[in-house]
Amino acid sequence: MKLAVVILALAMTGCASVADIEHTPPTMSVMSGKSPQEYADCFVARITDSRNPPQIEPHREGMRVIVPQKFTHGTPTAIVDIEKRSGGSSIKLFESGGNNPLRPKDIQHAVNACISGE
């Protein structure tokens, strides 16, 4: 029975593309005193403990970090847009299944941990 619930949950989340994820409302929207590069470096260092390395690419006035799913390689589960602002960065987190309370919280924890000058 538990296996059926897990399979159903995975089927409901599906395989989202970057375009699908970026058209969802942001799960988080925060500011940091770090530059986009400093913030991206911190986030990547924290997230690689629980996932495969994310893809980093230039985006607008900053960077975009595309985070893969935990168990499938190459399928995105979240996007972190980091844009340059005076005195730091603006960070927006977009997640596939962002309204699912049972989703892993490792991405949100990494986003929060890198906000301040840690």
Results as ranks from 00 to 15, higher is better:
residue 18 V to L: 00
residue 84 K to W: 13
residue 14 G to Y: 03
residue 26 P to Q: 12
residue 37 Q to R: 09
residue 9 A to V: 07
residue 80 V to D: 08
residue 30 V to C: 13
residue 25 P to D: 15
residue 17 S to K: 08
residue 6 V to P: 07
residue 77 T to K: 15
residue 19 A to C: 02
residue 70 K to C: 04
residue 35 S to Q: 04
residue 37 Q to W: 10
residue 92 K to M: 14
residue 86 S to C: 02
residue 80 V to I: 08
residue 27 T to K: 05
residue 26 P to V: 06
residue 70 K to I: 07
residue 53 P to R: 03
residue 87 G to T: 12
residue 30 V to K: 05
residue 82 I to M: 01
residue 19 A to G: 09
residue 10 L to E: 06
residue 11 A to T: 13
residue 52 N to K: 13
residue 64 R to V: 00
residue 39 Y to V: 11
residue 88 G to A: 02
residue 64 R to L: 03
residue 32 S to R: 01
residue 48 T to L: 03
residue 63 M to C: 00
residue 25 P to N: 10
residue 65 V to P: 08
residue 60 R to L: 11
residue 66 I to T: 07
residue 92 K to V: 11
residue 20 D to K: 07
residue 67 V to W: 15
residue 89 S to M: 05
residue 92 K to W: 13
residue 25 P to C: 07
residue 90 S to F: 11
residue 20 D to P: 02
residue 51 R to S: 02
residue 66 I to K: 05
residue 81 D to N: 05
residue 28 M to G: 14
residue 68 P to A: 09
residue 77 T to Y: 06
residue 77 T to S: 11
residue 21 I to Q: 09
residue 72 T to P: 00
residue 20 D to N: 03
residue 80 V to T: 09
residue 71 F to R: 08
residue 37 Q to I: 14
residue 49 D to T: 11
residue 23 H to M: 01
residue 39 Y to S: 12
residue 39 Y to P: 14
residue 40 A to R: 13
residue 58 P to G: 14
residue 53 P to H: 04
residue 29 S to N: 07
residue 13 T to C: 15
residue 8 L to K: 10
residue 79 I to E: 14
residue 74 G to P: 01
residue 33 G to C: 04
residue 92 K to L: 15
residue 8 L to S: 15
residue 31 M to P: 11
residue 43 F to E: 15
residue 78 A to E: 04
residue 59 H to I: 04
residue 90 S to V: 13
residue 80 V to N: 14
residue 66 I to F: 15
residue 45 A to I: 00
residue 32 S to Y: 01
residue 6 V to G: 09
residue 90 S to I: 03
residue 58 P to E: 10
residue 44 V to P: 02
residue 61 E to R: 09
residue 38 E to P: 00
residue 56 I to Y: 03
residue 15 C to Y: 10
residue 14 G to P: 14
residue 17 S to E: 07
residue 28 M to K: 12
residue 92 K to I: 08
residue 27 T to M: 06
residue 67 V to N: 05
residue 6 V to T: 10
residue 82 I to D: 01
residue 68 P to G: 14
residue 76 P to E: 13
residue 40 A to C: 07
residue 39 Y to N: 09
residue 89 S to E: 08
residue 79 I to W: 01
residue 25 P to S: 14
residue 17 S to V: 12
residue 21 I to V: 05
residue 62 G to A: 05
residue 55 Q to G: 02
residue 69 Q to F: 10
residue 56 I to M: 10
residue 42 C to E: 02
residue 11 A to Y: 11
residue 72 T to E: 15
residue 24 T to P: 10
residue 86 S to R: 08
residue 22 E to G: 02
residue 37 Q to G: 11
residue 48 T to P: 06
residue 16 A to G: 02
residue 10 L to W: 08
residue 61 E to L: 12
residue 29 S to Y: 06
residue 67 V to M: 03
residue 10 L to V: 10
residue 35 S to V: 04
residue 67 V to H: 11
residue 46 R to Q: 12
residue 84 K to I: 08
residue 86 S to F: 09
residue 44 V to E: 02
residue 10 L to H: 05
residue 90 S to P: 14
residue 59 H to V: 09
residue 60 R to H: 09
residue 40 A to P: 08
residue 54 P to Q: 05
residue 19 A to K: 09
residue 49 D to C: 04
residue 73 H to Q: 13
residue 45 A to D: 09
